[in-house]
Design a protein around this nucleic acid. Structure first.
Length: 679
DNA sequence: CCATTTGTAAACAGTA
DNA sequence: ATACTGTTTACAAATG
């Protein structure tokens, strides 16, 4: 291997590097003002003070937004459920209503987002998509449950009555029940609508006429997803403009599907029931709204934008009167209507179930992350305490934040607690510089940096949390992630800043550390290149340097476990969010849809490297580690091509290494099995 | 208590 | 002259 001893002289001008160099400037822009307070007259180098901005950094903001997103997601589900199924504004229907949704109440948390926030986070189409998805799900179930594709009970007319109820009863009773159901359905729909309206997602038509029956304005939210089902003979089926569809928003990932129906409508979410200050369940709001509609004569939940909003029916009606007429004729109490109503009920139930599942998941997530579910933290503390000055003062932190167990501990985590995306073992790392954060769980700790990183990639990228890895392991990671397995210093810097929000601060400090590590560890080999020098990893050395200390210490295991499980959760969470196309998360820095899987690109890197004995062998390598590939292959990259990779805003993720996906062999995350490493 | 690892700070030299 | 890169030393903290 061409691992030459470090010191050759660099002759070629690393011009390329500079080109990329924007990084430094960008990263510590904040500190810029500080003037490079050169500590000593001589030390002109990295003396840029660390930034100590009191304000919320972008990273923090993102972090915060993430939390909000989760909240919103939850709330949304709640609203869906509550809005559609809230029992009742009318005492009368209580009896008939099969659906009860106390659930939602429970989920509501005091710190719910405002409609505006909701709006910011979820775009109408997204909300609609979400709804449609779930309804579609319902549809399937409905069919499976014996409902014909047309929404009618398969057995023609036989069991007209909703399953739960007595199938054959006096017609009078039956009708009453149907009517009640219908009424309820309408109200529910309206509630839902109102909810949306309140959120500013739907614009209400001022001109809605009044009537005994109300309308459901805005088509946007109307369950158009059940076209076939809804469309029956009588209904002038319009080409359902299922605008949305697609997004595989798999809220069902939870596998709610099958079970659902059997499940009792009322689910008691783990979360504590929050009530409004006035002591009323949060849901009340919606209830109020629903009742309000009755007051406003001009509207009908099933009428809006001049058309009938009955599921699957989009008949145009000039005015309310006409609509009423239409309603009475086309959607009279008949089998079809009843069936549709039932389906809608199912939808509601499904939503409830889904909600329960999601909340359970949330619980699990929080539990896993050691957060107290019940007390949603207001996010009071700034994510980064921000070291008062450029350099972390060694004073505080250290002891406090580092936890041997490598698990997350709330104390430090001001921000973290609520954060859904709380990575595993990061417990220790002094989040935010409080001081020198020692003892990262680092590679040594078994936690396969690559997989961990891959799974929590988004988290680190957006949360200003110090990654629980050592500089050495991070550097290695950065290098191995690239196809060439080599990076210039500047590229390494860029990787750090790109991958970790944390390293977007205090640049002088960590850059110095990076350089220090590069020089210090034999595993990092500097190779001359046409354009300058690049750094490569001598895997053997790297492996060597890890002391066999780590045994199966419980902490380690814990760490790993938490990491893994978290990763899983995180993945699903991200996937869910991504699929539901949360704008927030899709935003530049955030997770990119479909990235759930794509997160892995990173992993490839470590793959090769880690523990596993590489086939090769290169050199007199001890039996187990022989990661020759890296060392030997030091083909100096002709051109660092730094520009490309760093900048790429687009494919931020594994951007730099196109090949990431390529070499299958590389990508196994498993490789870094703890066992291996530890030994 | 000691050895080791790691992080941080800083001095310093070479180069562009 | 300045900034970046790279090396090295020193020190502190954490850990086994």
């Amino acid at each position: 291997m061409m691992v030459e001893s470090a010191s050759e002289t660099i002759r070629s001008a690393p011009s390329g590097q500079n080109g990329v160099g924007s990084l430094s400037g960008q990263t510590d822009g904040s500190s810029g003002g500080a003037t490079g307070t050169t500590a000593s007259g001589t030390g002109r180098d990295m003396t840029t003070g660390a930034d100590s901005n009191g304000e919320m950094s972008p990273a923090e903001l993102l972090h915060f937004q993430q939390q909000q997103a989760l909240q919103v997601a939850r709330q949304f589900l709640l609203q869906q459920a509550s809005g559609l199924s809230s029992p009742g504004n009318n005492d009368s229907k209580q009896s008939a209503s099969a659906v009860q949704v106390p659930v939602s109440v429970a989920m509501m948390s005091p710190q719910m987002l405002t409609p505006q926030q909701m709006q910011q986070i979820l775009s109408p189409p997204q909300l609609q998509a979400l709804l449609q998805q779930q309804q579609a799900l319902m549809l399937q179930q409905g069919v499976a449950a014996g409902w014909g594709p047309d929404g009618m009970p398969e057995a023609d007319g036989t069991p007209l009555c909703p399953p739960p109820r007595a199938p054959h009863q006096a017609l009078g009773n039956k009708q009453l029940a149907f009517q009640q159901q219908l009424l309820q359905m309408q109200q529910l729909q309206q509630q839902h609508l109102l909810n949306l309206q309140r959120q500013g997602l739907v614009s209400l038509q001022p001109n809605q006429a009044s009537g005994p029956l109300q309308t459901l304005p805005q088509a946007a939210v109307c369950p158009t997803d059940l076209p076939q089902l809804w469309k029956g003979e009588g209904a002038p089926g319009q080409p359902a403009e299922d605008s949305v569809k697609q997004e595989g928003l798999d809220l069902t990932g939870t596998a709610a599907t099958a079970t659902s129906f059997a499940a009792p409508p009322k689910v008691s979410p783990p979360l504590s029931h929050h009530t409004l200050p006035n002591g009323q369940p949060t849901v009340l709001t919606s209830r109020r709204d629903s009742s309000s509609h009755e007051e406003t004569p001009g509207s009908h939940p099933l009428y809006g934008h001049g058309e009938c909003k009955w599921p699957g029916c989009e008949t145009l009606c000039e005015d309310l009167g006409q609509f009423i007429k239409h309603l009475n004729t086309e959607h009279a109490l008949d089998d079809r209507s009843t069936a549709q109503c039932r389906v809608q009920m199912q939808v509601v139930q499904q939503l409830e179930i889904q909600l329960a599942k999601e909340s359970e998941r949330l619980q699990a997530m929080m539990a896993h992350l050691h957060m107290r579910p019940s007390e949603p933290k207001p996010f009071s503390q700034p994510l980064n305490p921000v070291p008062g000055s450029s350099s972390f003062s060694k004073v505080t932190v250290s002891a406090a934040d580092s936890f041997p167990d490598g698990l997350v501990h709330p104390p430090t985590s001001a921000a973290a607690p609520v954060t859904p995306l709380r990575p595993p073992g990061l417990g220790s790392a002094s989040l935010h510089g409080g001081g020198p954060a020692r003892r990262r769980s680092s590679d040594k700790f078994c936690s396969p940096i690559s997989s961990e990183l891959a799974q929590n990639h988004e988290f680190y990228k957006n949360a200003d949390v110090r990654p629980p890895f050592t500089y050495a392991s991070l550097i290695r990671q950065a290098i191995l992630e690239t196809p060439d397995r080599q990076l210039t210093l500047n590229e390494i810097y860029n990787w750090f800043t790109r991958m970790f929000a944390y390293f977007r601060r205090n640049t002088a400090t960590w850059k110095n550390a990076v350089r220090h590590n590069l020089s210090l560890h034999k595993c990092f080999v500097r190779v001359e290149n046409v354009k300058g020098a690049v750094w490569t990893v001598d895997e053997q050395e790297y492996q060597k340097r890890r002391p066999p200390k780590m045994t199966g210490s419980p902490t380690l295991v814990k760490n790993m476990i938490s990491g893994l499980s978290y990763g899983a959760l995180n993945a699903s969470y991200q996937a869910a969010l991504a699929e539901s196309s949360f704008p927030l998360l899709n935003s530049p820095g955030m997770l990119n849809p479909g990235s759930a899987s794509s997160l892995l690109p990173l992993s490839h890197d470590d793959v090769g490297a880690p523990v596993e004995p590489l086939p090769s062998n290169g050199s007199s390598s001890p039996p187990r580690l022989s990661p020759p590939q890296y060392s030997h292959q030091v083909h100096v990259k002709e051109e660092p091509a730094e520009a490309e990779e760093d900048r790429q805003p687009g494919p931020p993720l594994g951007a730099p290494n196109p090949s990431a996906s390529g070499p299958p062999e590389d990508r196994d995350l498993e490789e870094e099995l703890p066992g291996e490493e530890l030994s």
